[in-house]
């Protein structure tokens, strides 16, 4: 099949961007979307032009590095699928595709379709962990965890940090990403001691990073390649509200000895 692509090209963070039109010829239905772009790039290189920069790594839908808006949909038309796992059989001959980077103030364009998602790392730094050092924890089976809880935690933990939730949200909100981590750790017994503190800190960081708020449009859940439920946002809100209501000033007293 042959396709027409309009790809966002931007030389750098501070450069002006524009759409460029390219033709993708003889595209096989078995190609992944990124393989189609590879072929376009080979053509550009052969003509001495700069190839389209896009982030990608594992190409099996788990590293979370790839992602672009394809005709106004994050990761393209196939549900529960990253861009690298989207195959060209989802398109038909003659289709015209508009390809744009994730757009959010917190996700600055680095080049072309590559954006900076370091805000996500900083949200995790704010509290997305269990504060245990490597050492001698108790036996792994010492605390039984019901299968239901473990499964729910896994549903939340499946987040790959690709940013599609932010990209698809009309408000540019990172609530689904933050909620997934707050919920993954907040569900498990190991995450309980820091549960409310974590919610407080991660939400504060999320706000600091200039993401928008959550209006529960539901677009994030639909865009999420791992199908993470917006119910986790309700859970985060619950933990946050409880954290606000019960928080105490942190003091150093009584800690060291």
């Amino acid at each position: 099949m042959n396709l027409i692509l309009h790809v966002w090209r931007q030389a750098g963070a501070n450069a002006a961007g524009r759409f460029e039109r390219y033709e993708a010829r003889d595209v096989s239905a078995d190609m992944s979307f990124l393989e189609m772009l590879d072929v376009v790039n080979e053509g550009l290189i052969a003509n001495g032009q700069e190839p389209i920069a896009f982030d990608h790594d594992c190409r099996e839908g788990i590293c979370g590095m790839c992602g672009m808006m394809i005709n106004g949909t994050a990761h393209g038309p196939m549900k529960m699928t990253t861009t690298c796992q989207l195959h060209m059989r989802s398109f038909k001959d003659g289709d015209e595709l508009w390809i744009e980077p994730w757009r959010a103030r917190a996700f600055q364009v680095v080049k072309d379709l590559v954006v900076d998602r370091s805000a996500f790392d900083r949200i995790i730094q704010a509290g997305g962990f269990v504060s245990v050092n490597t050492g001698a924890p108790q036996d792994a089976n010492a605390i039984p965890i019901s299968k239901q809880v473990a499964d729910d935690a896994m549903d939340a933990a499946a987040c790959i940090g690709c940013g599609a939730c932010v990209a698809a949200c009309p408000n540019g909100s990172a609530s689904l990403f933050t909620a997934a981590k707050v919920s993954h750790l907040g569900l498990l017994p190991q995450g309980q001691p820091e549960r409310y503190r974590r919610a407080l800190k991660m939400v504060a960081q999320m706000d600091l990073e200039d993401f928008g708020h959550c209006t529960l449009f539901g677009e994030c859940q639909e865009a999420c390649p791992k199908g993470i439920s917006i119910d986790f946002i309700a859970r985060m809100n619950h933990d946050y509200l409880r954290a606000v209501a019960t928080q105490r000033e942190e003091t150093a007293a009584g800690g060291t000895g």
Binding site: G72, E100, R103, A104, P170, F217, E219
Partner: peptide
């Protein structure tokens, strides 16, 4: 919050299709 949401996406998409 509306102001904040506007600020969160200073450059808008050419195309964004609401899904659900």
């Amino acid at each position: 919050l509306t102001q904040r949401a506007r600020a969160a996406r200073p450059v808008d998409y050419r195309m964004r299709e609401p899904q659900v």
